[in-house]
């Protein structure tokens, strides 16, 4: 770390921000992530057409490469504008992503905290349970949950979150285990602080950095798994403008030469996943280069 000439004390956050700004790739990814989020928020303003209603007379039209100005990315097998569907798809992917993050954060952090802080039998039991969940391939676990609960966006969220809760719990647990032995926690306890105060004031701030990094990378994975479930046709209703489902609808037309129906949704998935991955990597480097996620 460079020595600051002004000798002014610097906060952890401003140092992290400086570090992040140095990483060009991370800055680019930040703007891409922002762009994707704005695309979701302003979907009704950006989209050209309604993403769900079929317009059969427009079906399978090529896009801008054939001079098509009203459907820049072409239309799908039901005549719906692919650009508009991709824009609305951002909402679905991000919605699933945010919900997965929320569920994972709440349950993962609580379980990890309980496990590490109370230790002994509870810890042993909880860690054995996470072992069990970690011995399934992630996609298989999600499929099993969908098989039990049935299809639907909410169930897909739950299925995907279940993949990450055990991992999140493990990360939080390992951080808490190292933090809770530190002298300042002991000092705080000697001063009469209760468990709750120690957890909220001393432990939680320490797990903030790894949690934020993990959740950002998780968003990338969640987008990928949502698309995978959509592609397999067991996550989401096929008429929903979900990227994976769009791909799967277009596969039969791919062999007939209508490549745009599959190419563009796939590019959008790859672009979003890449952006969130790069952004997460950049955050990790800025917040704590030694972090091991």
């Amino acid at each position: 770390m460079a020595i600051d000439k002004s000798n002014k004390p610097q906060s952890y956050m401003s140092l992290a921000f400086k570090q992040f700004k140095k990483n060009k790739l991370a800055v680019i990814s930040f703007f891409m992530v922002m762009g994707i989020m704005l695309l979701g928020v302003f979907a009704p303003l950006i989209a050209l057409e309604d993403p769900i209603t079929p317009v059969l007379e427009n079906k399978l039209q090529p896009g801008f490469w054939a001079g098509n100005k009203s459907h820049p990315l072409g239309t799908d097998e039901l005549g719906r504008d692919i650009f508009s569907r991709i824009v609305y798809g951002t909402r679905i992917s991000l919605k699933v992503g945010y919900m997965v993050i929320a569920i994972t954060a709440v349950l993962g952090i609580s379980l990890g905290l309980i496990s590490a802080y109370y230790g002994k039998l509870i810890d042993l039991l909880l860690m054995r349970i996470t072992d069990i969940f970690l011995s399934f391939p992630p996609l298989l676990l999600a499929l099993a949950v969908v098989a039990i609960l049935g299809t639907g966006l909410e169930k897909a969220m739950l299925a995907i979150a279940l993949i990450y809760i055990p991992q999140m719990a493990r990360i939080v647990r390992s951080v808490v285990l190292t933090v809770k032995e530190l002298p300042y926690v002991e000092a705080s306890r000697a001063l009469g602080a209760g468990n709750l105060r120690i957890i909220v004031c001393h432990i939680l701030p320490n797990i903030l950095a790894p949690t934020v990094v993990y959740l950002t990378l998780l968003l990338a994975d969640a987008i990928l798994y949502t698309a995978a479930l959509g592609f397999l046709g067991i996550g989401i209703d096929p008429s929903t403008p979900e990227w994976g489902a769009m791909l799967s609808n277009g596969r039969d037309y791919l062999l007939l030469g209508y490549w745009w129906v599959t190419v563009f949704p796939g590019l959008m998935i790859a672009l979003s996943v890449l952006s969130f991955n790069l952004f997460g990597d950049g955050l990790r480097e800025a917040l704590d280069p030694k972090m091991d996620i």
């Binding site: 990338a220 698309a227 995978a228 592609f231 796939g266 996943v273 991955n277």
Partner: peptide, 13 residues
């Protein structure tokens, strides 16, 4: 970052 299933479809195409 590239979804496996999309890559597969592109290879087929």
């Amino acid at each position: 970052s590239i979804p496996v299933f999309w890559l597969g479809l592109m290879l087929i195409f």
